[in-house]
Amino acid sequence: MDLSAFVATHGGVIPSSWLRARRVSSRRLTDALRSGVLIRPRRGWVAVPTADPELIRAAGEGVVITCISLARRRGLWVLKEPEWHVAAPSHAGHVGLPGAVTHWRTPLVPRPPGSLEDEIENMLVQVALCQPDDAALAIWESALRTGRADIDRLRNLPLPEPASRLLDQVTPWSDSGLETIAVVRLRWLGLPLRPQIWIAGHRVDLLIGDRLVLQIDGGSHVGAQRDSDNRHDAELRLRGYHVIRVGYRQVVDNWPEVQALVMAAVAAGLHRRPR
């Protein structure tokens, strides 16, 4: 058996017990480590030198990647990830890992031996307990929208209250985390908020009331996409809609500006259908 190939095909970082179970001798393993074919993140683990550095770090620290760090690794919509989020086993002692957020909660779904990345359901629970409601809901909807999580499996779990509350709020309609965040932050208006509905041949990001359209630009709104958006905005206005178009940074870093624009439009009655 080619040790390097075996480790690489099993994620690049594995418990050394997996090799012993396949009758790899201690001598052969030692030779592979001395020659640099394999490296040892910590006692009981081996890795190929080209393995994912984050997995090597997790093995070296004796933790499992979870919460928003795992959401980012799974390609889900994550607002911000200023710190590394990991889960530690209860027997590790409640000493936080420097430079990381360590979660100690007992997982709802058991983690298989040798896991360095959490189960998706555990990750979503950690997100619900750790992140603000709007950012957490954006991740939950992203997980369900992309098929990473199954809503029926989540409903069958004994979820803690924050996670159960998020499950009651998730919808399949928002096309991105930015739209989810906008909906959560504008609910206090008490107006109908309808994401991703068709008007004039295209979807709009959010319709507030009857006539107020909030369009949120991501990084792809340039070139031909921008031209198409401008044409659609013009068509919306010709049909009597009021359009507010904002960018990613405004939503993420300057939400009060966006909220002020919406409040001014609502105060002027621009969300109502003309009588």
Rank of each mutant, 00 (worst) to 15 (best):
L38K: 06
V184H: 01
D150V: 10
L159E: 02
R74F: 12
E179A: 04
G75I: 09
L159I: 05
G96W: 02
V24K: 01
V95M: 04
I139P: 00
I208Y: 08
Q126S: 08
R34K: 13
C130T: 12
V46P: 10
H85I: 09
R239C: 13
H94P: 13
A51F: 00
W140H: 03
H202C: 14
C130P: 09
V243M: 09
A32T: 05
R111Y: 00
Q215H: 08
A267D: 13
G177V: 04
A234H: 11
A51C: 11
W84K: 04
V170T: 14
L166C: 10
R148T: 13
V86G: 07
G75L: 14
W188M: 06
H85V: 04
K80G: 09
D150G: 06
W84A: 06
V204L: 04
R74Q: 14
L19S: 06
P113E: 11
D31F: 00
R239V: 10
V78T: 01
T171K: 05
L144D: 06
R73P: 04
Q126T: 02
P195M: 08
L189R: 06
R245Q: 07
D227Q: 14
A143Y: 11
G62M: 09
E61H: 15
E61D: 13
L238W: 11
D253H: 15
P110S: 02
L193S: 09
P195F: 00
I244S: 02
P98K: 12
H221A: 09
S26R: 15
L79E: 14
G36E: 07
I39P: 07
L108H: 09
R28C: 00
S142G: 11
R185D: 11
V258F: 05
G93W: 03
L38E: 05
W45E: 07
W173F: 09
V183Q: 11
C67P: 14
A135V: 02
P49S: 13
R23F: 06
L3A: 03
A182K: 04
V170G: 11
G114I: 10
V37S: 14
R22L: 15
L38C: 08
T9N: 15
Q169K: 15
P158Q: 07
C130M: 00
Y241S: 03
A163T: 03
P49V: 11
R145L: 10
A224L: 01
A267G: 13
P15A: 13
V125C: 00
A87L: 04
P89D: 10
I244A: 06
G114E: 07
A224V: 05
R187P: 13
W188G: 12
L76N: 08
A143W: 01
S69H: 12
G96C: 11
